[in-house]
Write a protein that binds this DNA or RNA. Structure first.
Length: 519
RNA sequence: GCCCCCUUCGUCUAGUGGCCCAGGACAUCGGGUUCUCAGUCCGAAGACACGGGUUCGACUCCCGUAGGGGGUACCA
């Protein structure tokens, strides 16, 4: 039975590197009919775990990455929080000491520092001399009488080699002699990550440890701990990093400001800010950023777009397949085809997946997505009136591919605000209705709108063509002024569709109002 | 310093010795189409880090160099 896990720290954010790791673990488990476990690495107890965990759980759920065991679902090995498992770690430390795989150590920080510096000076790798290690209880008493406090260190082998079998990188060899006697238990009695992770992976029966490459160098000590404790060593797979845009450095949530200088990043951010402004929401600069999943959720990305993009960040099936639905991903994924080199995050490419999936989404399914934004903006009541559904269907049909994320609906205010409240761009008016002729054409055209029946896109187009032909005018001489009159903007949906949706009364009022203003 | 990992178009990648004067996608740039925009169609430009081997033949194998990244914590 395959069991994989994702072990986030409750930081309050789910960032894209983490999601990619979670996704690969999840895919691997699902593909093998196994289980995917969520474990919370909350050894840093300062923060409010519950609160900081919620965005992470929400993000994973939104993406459809479901877990079989972990927070909110529990499971046979609960609790799944490291902070609640201290006793298990303590027992493991005792076992390590009992079998001679670890020892109490009383070195002072400055004593260690001296050894480290002298190693540096000799250009050899540092290894602790074990000079202050306690062999017996009486040694411990002696050191403690000197006022020293003890930690527990691993008694690592000093020679020989260890081979880590990695499903992505093959065999990786390390010299035991290079390894440190790492601390596994602090002076205050708490345990360190390497010990905790090994114990947890064993207790939770994890078979495949799929994690980021940064842990590869740490694997020997974890193998040592597992073996010393008599645990089977799991399979490992170390994923390449998700790197910064335009760089190979591991992406970090601490450098948000720096990424905003990246062109495509800035553009996405701009797009998102526009939506947030229309919602009247001022997002927190720290948490509203394209490296965090919540960002995409907030502005109306489709989970499928993110999933597909992350899948291809370090993995590919072949030379041409790009689009994978959930089931296809699960069926096709393989650790063997994971890339070895870091993959840098490209917001523009992510956006192109979003375009693709949004374009493919049936209009009916877009209705509830955009409705949520319209209600939040206060343009549609909650609950919506019964004619809103059909109306939105019409509007969305007219908008077509112009809707890239659900929040973009807010840039089509012309369909939702009252005639008096419609914002009209004066620059566009100045440009499109600059000449008396252009105003005269619009005025004349307005009068003809009264007779058109039915007032639909087709009739409007036919009528307009006739109107223009009779006067030897071209389409361009009318439409731009017409569009700004009814929408307030220079760009938008097809003008006849727009007129039809708005209906005769609103069109006449808006055109009349604008002509009054500028004449 | 020491150890480990990595290196194909700007980006994600295909490529497991001849099918590759390197294929696809995104982005870019031209052009067609449309009432604007979005879209769509057609086209262009663009890469094997470098140096040595091995071989009839190397992007592919070996060695080295350079560059990038990670680890080396009483962080995770």
């Amino acid at each position: 039975m395959v069991r994989t896990r994702f072990a986030p720290s409750p930081t309050g954010y789910l960032h894209i590197g983490g999601v990619r790791t979670a996704l690969f673990n999840w895919l691997f488990a699902r593909q093998h009919g196994g289980q995917f476990i969520l474990r919370i690495d909350d050894t840093d107890e300062q923060r409010n775990v519950r609160e900081a965990l919620q965005p992470i759980l929400d993000g994973l759920r939104w993406l459809g990455i479901d877990w079989d065991e972990g927070p909110e679902v529990d499971g046979p090995y609960a609790p799944y929080y490291q902070s609640l498992r201290a006793q298990r770690y303590e027992a493991a430390v005792q076992q390590l000491i009992a079998t001679g795989a670890a020892y109490w150590d009383y070195a002072l920080a400055e004593e260690l520092q001296l050894e480290r510096e002298s190693a540096q000076a000799d250009q050899r790798s540092f290894r602790y001399s074990r000079k202050w290690s306690a062999e017996s209880p009486s040694d411990r008493q002696r050191f403690e009488a000197q006022g020293r406090t003890g930690v527990v260190r691993l008694k690592m082998p000093q020679s020989g080699k260890v081979t880590i079998r990695d499903q992505i990188r093959g065999n990786v060899e390390f010299d035991w002699g290079q390894e440190q006697d790492h601390v596994v238990q602090r002076a205050d009695g708490t345990c360190l990550y390497h010990l905790a992770t090994v114990v947890d992976d064993y207790d939770f029966q994890i078979t495949h440890v799929i994690r980021a490459e940064e842990h590869l160098s740490n694997t020997p000590r974890q193998v040592f701990i597992a073996q010393a404790l008599g645990y089977p060593v799991p399979e490992f797979a170390h994923l390449p990093f998700v790197a910064e845009p335009g760089s190979k450095t591991k992406i970090s949530k601490r450098k948000l400001q720096k990424y905003l200088k990246h062109h495509d990043f800035a553009q996405l951010m701009q797009h998102a800010s526009t939506i947030m402004q229309r919602l009247g929401d001022v997002p927190d600069a720290e948490s509203f950023n394209p490296i965090l999943v919540g960002f995409y959720q907030r502005i109306g990305f489709l989970p499928q777009s993110l999933l597909n993009y992350f899948l291809l960040l370090g993995w590919s099936l072949d030379e041409k397949t790009e689009f994978f639905g959930r089931d296809e991903m699960i069926a096709q994924f393989s650790l063997g085809r994971v890339n070895h080199a870091p993959a840098s995050f490209d917001p523009a490419k992510l956006m192109s997946f979003q375009d693709h999936y949004m374009r493919g989404l049936p209009i009916k399914q877009k209705v509830p997505l955009v409705l949520a934004y319209l209600q939040e903006a206060g343009w549609v009541t909650t609950p919506p009136a019964c004619d809103v559904g059909p109306y939105l269907l019409q509007v969305l049909a007219a908008i077509g591919d112009r809707l890239r994320v659900s929040g973009d609906i807010l840039s089509f205010d012309e369909f939702f605000v009252d005639d008096e409240q419609l914002a009209v761009d004066p620059q566009v008016v100045a440009k499109c209705l600059a000449t008396p002729e252009s105003r005269a054409i619009l005025h004349e055209y307005q009068a003809t709108l009264v007779d058109i029946a039915p007032f639909d896109s087709n009739s409007l187009e036919q009528h307009t063509k006739g109107f223009l032909a009779a006067r030897s005018l071209k389409m361009g001489q009318l439409v731009h002024g017409l569009r700004v009159a009814v929408t307030g903007k220079a760009i938008g949906c097809g003008v006849f569709e727009t007129l039809a949706i708005l209906g005769r009364e609103r069109c006449l009022r808006r055109i009349g109002r604008l002509l009054e203003q500028i004449l």
